[in-house]
Design a protein around this nucleic acid. Structure first.
Lengths: 251, 251
DNA sequence: AAAATAGTGTCTATGAGACACTATAGT
DNA sequence: ACTATAGTGTCTCATAGACACTATTTT
């Protein structure tokens, strides 16, 4: 560490050059949204086919540029409404990707978000235009290692635009790190759900099986969910009790 | 790291050549850095006095606009070098703040980072200009609740510019959530440290005392640190063994 | 009745907290 | 010798995993 080096003119000039550049040309700012769901034990995310250059024909996260007077959250809502026909979805900011060459058009800094929704709601919402697919996300790493992921549709790998494989990987990594202590698993289920469904959601996100007994104990002891007194129907076995989020959690 | 870029055909190259990024008004993009340290059991952060409007006279996080061809990480490095005279500091992205009215000049989207350094290094580093203070951070909430924090110098509260009290609070919240499982406590200590020093760092960040016995057991069992065989000197009591990060951790 | 999953009770292993005790520096 | 903190050994308690067992639905 050379923290005690005196400041020299070149450093000051570098600062001034960078500052002046920012006065003339500003980067573009976009939001990209990882809209994820768990469907029958499979992790999926919505992708949009790029109809125009750049990366024409490859698949991208739904996204868009941030308006000059538009908040980041508002931009995300607009994107979700327009590309997936969804409103009032659980959304959290993920990370901001700012490599100078990540978009060939110009400098684009992208603030990535993830949105979670249950599979039924996502299937019911019809996107305004075509060119949209609910891709299967294949995670080629274990635990919290991180890295790019692979998107599949009909068994074939989809080419992903820009650095979106990295953004998808970061979203999976964040979900895996958070699901054990934050109430995000519920966002991937309908309002009423069984403990088995919740366990499947956790297992799908984490990428490995979890212990049934301790999972039930832990979830019930957390006080986050309450039994409804009703049971699931149309199953081939003993029906499980339906639970819902504790009213104080407000959903 | 980043995914393979799709092949560029002539049509796409023509599109890129004709692309005009200045078609719309773009927000400005800045980085703000929470440069934090733990000094004798006190959490501190570097603040810079604003010499110009807006918020003239109040205190702000060190920051600066991102150059058009400059990566976010490079902008953070530049800010740390210029405002604190530091290089090779541990840095991680925190969150991006984008409320349209957070800066009265114009639309400024700020990508916030936090940087961690040990107190001795921070004291040794000479900031380029005056108007810099190492403020005490007072956290008026417990655990992971979150919220604004208060900056103090010489016992008096410092007025904070823009939304920087919120950014500082988010940094504390992130550190508290991460220190139990991520190796960030070591970044706040010199290369060699005692277990008691490490415990004090944890207690200062968390805002509450931790159990000595289980802390020692947990840290030693993690295998992250190794004993050096040497002991501290010039203390009024039995000197403790000095530890350092396990070589494989690479620092 | 058979099949399948829901749900309960209990034993064990592990890790945290508590506490007593010994060790070693400076004064 | 006294004081303060370092460091160790052991007991207890809480929680996760494992496993056996019972309960309840459809076919």
């Amino acid at each position: 560490m050379s923290a005690d080096q005196p400041r020299r003119d070149p450093e000051e000039q570098a600062f001034l050059a960078a500052y002046d550049a920012s006065e003339f040309a500003h980067p573009s700012v976009a939001v990209d949204v990882v809209l994820a769901t768990v469907d029958a034990g499979i992790l999926r995310a919505l992708l949009v086919r790029r109809a125009e250059h750049p990366a024409k024909g490859s698949w991208a996260l739904p996204g868009g540029f941030v308006g000059f007077d538009e908040s980041l959250d508002a931009a995300v809502e607009r994107v979700l409404q327009r590309k997936a026909g969804l409103e009032n979805v659980f959304v959290e900011q993920l990370y901001t990707f700012g490599a100078p060459d990540r978009d060939p058009r110009t400098r684009v800094i992208s603030v990535a978000y993830y949105a979670l929704v249950d599979a039924a709601t996502l299937h019911a919402a019809q996107p305004a235009n075509g060119g949209v697919v609910l891709a299967t996300i294949d995670v080629p790493w274990d635990g919290l290692d991180g890295g790019d992921v692979v998107a599949l549709a009909d068994g074939a790998q989809l080419p992903l635009a820009f650095d979106h494989a990295t953004i998808l990987g970061a979203a999976v990594q964040r979900l895996r790190g958070k699901i054990d202590y934050a109430p995000i698993g519920f966002e991937l289920l309908p309002q009423r759900f069984t403990l088995r469904q919740l366990q499947t959601v956790h297992e799908t996100v984490l990428g490995h099986a979890v212990n049934k007994d301790s999972f039930r104990r832990r979830v019930l002891a957390s006080g986050q969910i309450v039994p409804t007194g009703e049971r699931e129907t149309d199953v081939l076995h003993r029906p499980a009790e339906l639970y819902e989020l504790h009213p104080s959690t407000g959903r």
